[in-house]
Computed example of a mutant assay.
Amino acid sequence: MIVSTTLQIVFRVFFDALAWSEEVSRYMLVWSTFLGATLAYKRSMHISVTFVRESFSQRVRKALRIARWFPRSSSSQWRSTLRWTTCRGSGNRFLPPCGFRCPSCTS
């Protein structure tokens, strides 16, 4: 991402701007955000308020830890189904900045 952004600045100042560098930087930023959030979640590094949880006994905490996965998994299943439906209905769209068509999930 740093290389792409640096190239974008250098080419805008001294040459013609690169059409693809802004798009690449944007996608890299989005992907690094999602991957970083996923990694932080997996390692339990997100900020959390624990005073309520710590007021329960060890047995209740374990039951709550197990029970929290049911709404998460159903929510994940619902979002996956929604995304698949959206992807199938998107068709074969043209991406002007890249100059090519984005294939749909059905092709």
Results as ranks from 00 to 15, higher is better:
residue 44 S to A: 06
residue 14 F to I: 11
residue 102 C to V: 13
residue 35 L to N: 07
residue 85 T to N: 12
residue 62 K to W: 12
residue 52 V to T: 03
residue 43 R to L: 06
residue 35 L to C: 11
residue 80 S to F: 12
residue 84 W to M: 09
residue 55 S to Y: 00
residue 11 F to I: 00
residue 24 V to G: 01
residue 34 F to W: 01
residue 39 L to E: 09
residue 42 K to S: 07
residue 10 V to F: 07
residue 92 N to D: 14
residue 69 W to Y: 15
residue 1 M to D: 10
residue 4 S to D: 07
residue 38 T to P: 00
residue 87 C to I: 03
residue 68 R to S: 04
residue 84 W to S: 08
residue 18 L to C: 04
residue 81 T to H: 14
residue 59 R to M: 02
residue 106 T to A: 06
residue 23 E to R: 05
residue 104 S to M: 13
residue 48 S to Y: 00
residue 2 I to V: 06
residue 30 V to E: 09
residue 29 L to N: 11
residue 94 F to P: 10
residue 27 Y to P: 01
residue 93 R to Y: 13
residue 93 R to I: 14
residue 15 F to L: 12
residue 79 R to E: 05
residue 72 R to V: 14
residue 94 F to N: 03
residue 74 S to T: 15
residue 50 T to N: 15
residue 30 V to M: 07
residue 29 L to E: 06
residue 89 G to E: 09
residue 32 S to V: 03
residue 25 S to V: 15
residue 65 R to F: 13
residue 59 R to G: 13
residue 105 C to L: 00
residue 44 S to L: 05
residue 95 L to A: 12
residue 35 L to W: 02
residue 99 G to K: 05
residue 42 K to Q: 10
residue 97 P to M: 09
residue 50 T to A: 11
residue 40 A to R: 14
residue 68 R to L: 05
residue 18 L to T: 01
residue 22 E to F: 03
residue 55 S to I: 00
residue 23 E to L: 10
residue 92 N to W: 11
residue 9 I to H: 10
residue 4 S to H: 09
residue 71 P to Q: 03
residue 67 A to S: 05
residue 46 H to I: 00
residue 27 Y to W: 08
residue 100 F to R: 10
residue 13 V to G: 05
